[in-house]
Simulated assay, not measured.
Amino acid sequence: MAKIIQAAMPVMGFGVHNYLALVDNSGNVVRELHGVARDGNGNLASWTTTGTLFATNSVSWNTFSTDAKHELASGTMTQMSQLFSAGEACATSITEKAVTYGVLAGGNSYNSNSAFISMAACMGLDTKVADMPGYEPGVDKHVLTQSEINAIRDLFRFDLPVPTWPEPSSGNAAPIADTSVTLVGVSDVHAAATC
């Protein structure tokens, strides 16, 4: 079965960078979704403390084989590609907002984990705590509002419970509690209950 995986890699010796990967039936990574920073010139800045948040499927650090992983969903490749497309649409919306990047996602800033949690929410996936030591700043701070995430879900025709959390300006977002994923008209897509 094809899968959507939450992967986590260590960052700067104390932090954790979460990202999403679409994996085919043979276990090969097809695409990844990351949040990264852009510097003042619009260039990707892989490990920086400030800039603008950029969410994309065009970055890979080729560390998937050694990163900590949790299976979030499985199904046919067509189903998982459709689900992953919602995350990619979310990435575009995040980038278009041009929010401030801050490595710790403090105040009015967001980081790669903020992008990760928002992209997972657009797919209706319940995320896990990274299976590695380290601080995960931003995993509780959605970049998109609830209505923006719901609009992406509607666009991709998901039949999912509507999550609730404070708007991003509060900085105190709660993780989404739903653990099931159902694509309209598809019955065998499910979120994994175990890692």
Rank of each mutant, 00 (worst) to 15 (best):
Y101H: 07
F54V: 05
T127K: 00
S93N: 13
D39M: 06
V103D: 09
V30S: 06
A177R: 08
K97D: 02
H34I: 03
S58L: 13
F64H: 11
A191E: 13
S170L: 11
T182P: 14
L20A: 00
I94C: 01
I149Y: 03
T49I: 07
H17N: 00
E96Y: 08
L144Q: 01
N62D: 08
N18W: 02
G171C: 02
L104W: 12
V184S: 12
V189N: 02
S118L: 06
R38N: 13
Q6C: 01
N41P: 15
S114N: 05
G13M: 06
I152S: 01
N18R: 03
H190S: 15
Y101G: 01
N18Q: 07
H142L: 14
M77D: 12
M119R: 01
N57W: 09
V129W: 14
L20F: 01
S187A: 11
T179N: 09
A86M: 05
L155P: 09
D140S: 14
E32C: 03
D140Y: 15
L22T: 01
A105L: 03
T66D: 08
V30Q: 06
S60L: 06
R157L: 09
W47I: 15
G42E: 04
W165L: 08
P10F: 02
G102H: 00
S187E: 14
D67N: 07
C195G: 15
S187G: 13
N28F: 14
T63F: 08
A2S: 08
A73S: 08
Q79G: 11
Q82C: 15
A177Q: 07
V181I: 15
A115M: 03
Q82Y: 10
P137H: 04
N43H: 11
S109F: 02
G102A: 06
D159Y: 10
T179P: 05
N43V: 10
T76V: 05
S114A: 07
S65A: 13
G42T: 04
G35K: 01
F158Q: 05
A193V: 13
P175L: 09
G134M: 03
A55W: 01
N43T: 15
P161C: 09
G185I: 03
A192C: 09
V11E: 13
G138S: 04
T49W: 13
E88Y: 07
I117Y: 02
T179Y: 13
M9A: 15
A173K: 06
I4H: 02
S74V: 14
L44G: 10
V99P: 00
P166T: 14
K128C: 14
K97P: 00
H190K: 10
T92E: 09
S81R: 12
L83V: 10
G138D: 01
N43P: 06
Q146V: 11
L72W: 02
H190L: 12
M119C: 04
V99A: 05
V11C: 07
I5M: 05
K128M: 07
T63Q: 09
N43Q: 14
A68Q: 06
M1H: 12
A173Q: 13
F14S: 11
N25R: 12
T194Q: 12
T95F: 04
T48R: 10
F14E: 12
K97N: 05
G75S: 05
